[in-house]
């Protein structure tokens, strides 16, 4: 395990993807600290505010002052020569560090309430896009991990056992899997979501979405794992283990599972983006994370508005860029991992 990590770090792509992921996870963990404004704080006087320019002024960091020129646009203008002081590690709104420790300090805070500190602009109700992006990363980054854990657990249980024992168990398990795979997943997703919808609050919805996504996703994993354990079953070292008097459970744990480990590692890394995109798609369709909570897919769905395209409010598309970076980082890491654990599949 350690040597796999070292090998990954030896490759340029591995370094890039690992550090990107590290940065992303740190963002998610310390979202409260990084955010400049509370997630839900609206300001109807500052809708679609452009990203504020942070400059060096008078021996410290400062933001330029803006003036609303045309409310219908809306259109803002920089007031020349007017600045608001911003400070690093300054006290601001209350939050809980890692969800436990009550804190007030933030990375960046404006001194006066007049200042408009929108690092990535604001949305249609004047909420800070940067802060929402930072908070939204929690959903996108954890959904993949939890989802893939459930998926691989189910896949390993059903696939591994049916491949190992074969016969009737295998037959019924695989027909079940095929049944699940025969249902178009988007419709299943929508149906499950609407059946479960009214009974859950927004926080619980997050867990429900993960469960729905993995309930649909495990069938494919089960099929692959069943094939692998079926072929491992026929390998002579399993017969040798049997001839030594090892019990089936022991053989599964000691001989089948470790031989599946490299596949599991790669499959897990490569299918996490599927969950991130799945959540984004659900939220985009208005079936995932609901307002006022924040997630990247939800933020993107608000950017569908024609007005945003016409008036070039590009900052509302930053969640798309965030999804892109996250997915690429996971895919790159998956590729690198595959090269490391299985030299025969080398891509170069």
């Amino acid at each position: 395990m350690k040597s796999i990590f070292r090998e990954v770090l030896r490759r340029r792509l591995g370094q890039i993807s690992l550090f990107t992921r590290l940065a992303l996870y740190l963002t998610a963990l310390f979202a409260g600290f990084l955010a400049t404004q509370p997630v839900n704080q609206q300001n109807l006087d500052a809708t679609f505010h452009p990203p504020t320019r942070v400059t060096w002024h008078d021996g410290g960091l400062a933001v330029r002052a803006y003036r609303l020129v045309d409310r219908s646009g809306p259109h803002y203008e920089v007031i020349p020569g007017e600045f608001h002081r911003v400070r690093l590690f300054a006290p601001g709104f209350d939050y809980k560090l890692l969800g436990l420790v009550p804190m007030k300090r933030h990375l960046l805070q404006a001194e006066s309430p007049e200042a408009r500190l929108y690092l990535l602009g604001s949305d249609s109700t004047g909420r800070c896009v940067f802060s929402r992006l930072v908070y939204g990363s929690r959903v996108s980054l954890t959904i993949g991990l939890i989802g893939i854990t459930i998926t691989l657990f189910l896949g390993l249980l059903v696939g591994g056992l049916s491949g190992y024992f074969g016969g009737r168990i295998d037959f019924f398990a695989m027909r079940g899997v095929e049944f699940l795979m025969a249902i178009p997943s988007l419709y299943l997703l929508l149906a499950l979501r609407s059946v479960l919808a009214p009974r859950f609050s927004s926080d619980q919805m997050f867990i429900v979405i993960v469960i729905i996504l993995s309930l649909i996703g495990w069938a494919g994993a089960a099929r692959v794992l069943r094939g692998m354990s079926l072929s491992l079953r026929r390998r002579q070292f399993v017969l040798a283990a049997e001839s030594m008097g090892q019990s089936p459970l022991r053989i599964l744990r000691l001989h089948i599972l470790p031989n599946l480990a490299s596949y599991l590692l790669v499959a897990a890394t490569l299918s996490i983006p599927g969950y991130i995109l799945g959540e984004a798609a659900l939220s985009f369709l208005g079936l995932g994370i609901a307002e006022p909570a924040s997630s990247w897919g939800l933020m993107l769905s608000q950017a569908q508005n024609i007005k945003i395209f016409m008036l070039n409010f590009w900052w509302l598309l930053t969640p798309g860029a965030a999804i892109f970076v996250t997915v690429i980082a996971f895919n790159l890491l998956g590729d690198v991992l595959r090269d490391v654990v299985d030299p025969r599949m080398k891509t170069q």
Partner: peptide
């Protein structure tokens, strides 16, 4: 198995678990 009656098989390379 193994305690009273033990086996050696033909292909040693495939009888050992590679991991």
């Amino acid at each position: 198995r193994g305690k009273e009656i033990a086996y050696i098989f033909q292909e040693p390379s495939s009888s050992l678990n590679p991991v």
